[in-house]
Every structure is written in structure tokens, then in C-alpha cells.
């Protein structure tokens, strides 16, 4: 099965990305985490995302476009990136998710990916 891992980071974790004192450790941890998954051959695709202040949210209300500054969920943690991985069971996917650098402090949401739509 394929699982999407959504990495939710705290404001403090996002700040580490650009803090000269902390950024080497921050990026080093992510590089090691993704490197280990790549070595295991489980990654199908995925990306890191720029910080939440760069997000723009759009909704349609009565056909009218409403554009708002910021991410759609007003939460303590915000989406910092995602990966789609191959795993036999939810437990195996959770084992990878628990190793993510943001799991301590932030959180990782794990969701099975929908199988491809059958040809019409």
C-alpha cells in the first residue's frame, strides 16, 4: 500500500530552518531521515514546503472567489512537507513517521493513498 505522510511543524521548528545556530541541525536531521527512507527504497514522491507565511487560501462563495492570506487550517502546527511511501501495513508506515524530525514537538499525519481510478 501507499501512504502519504504529512509533516506538521511548530512555529519553533519552522524558525529553525533559517536560524543560523539551529539550521544545520534542522536540515541535517531531515537529510538523514529522507536518506534512510531512500536507502530502504520506500519513497514514491514528496516535497518540502515553504513556510506557512507564504501560503494563500482560496474558496468559492456563491461563485465568487475569496482569497485569503495564510494556510486553510488555523492550527498550532502547520504543514511543512509531505512524502508518499510504500509500506505493507499502517504499522510499518507509522514506524517511518515516528522517525521524522518533526514528530517530536510537531506531528505526522499518516493516510493511505487512494488506489488509482479505474479507466473509464
Amino acid at each position: 500500500m501507499q501512504y502519504a505522510l504529512f509533516f506538521a511543524e511548530t512555529p519553533a521548528q519552522f524558525a529553525e530552518r533559517t536560524d543560523p545556530a539551529k539550521s544545520p541541525a534542522y536540515w541535517g536531521a531531515w537529510t538523514a531521515f529522507i536518506g534512510a527512507m531512500r536507502e530502504a527504497g520506500v519513497i514514491r514522491n514528496g516535497d518540502g514546503l515553504q513556510a506557512p507565511h507564504t501560503a494563500t487560501t482560496v474558496r468559492l462563495a456563491d461563485g465568487k472567489r475569496i482569497v485569503q492570506d495564510g494556510p486553510f487550517a488555523d492550527a498550532k502546527e502547520q504543514l511543512g512537507g509531505y512524502l508518499v511511501i510504500e509500506a505493507d501495513t499502517l504499522d510499518a508506515a507509522l514506524d517511518w513517521a515516528a522517525k521524522a524530525p518533526c514528530a517530536a514537538g510537531g506531528a505526522v499525519e499518516v493516510r493511505p493513498v487512494l488506489p488509482p481510478m479505474p479507466p473509464q
Binding site: D88, T89, L90, D91
Partner: peptide, 8 residues
């Protein structure tokens, strides 16, 4: 069923 919990 859908999230693939292991019967293990």
C-alpha cells in the same frame, strides 16, 4: 480495512 492495520 482501508488504512491497512496489520493482523499481526
Amino acid at each position: 480495512r482501508d488504512a491497512g492495520l496489520a493482523f499481526e
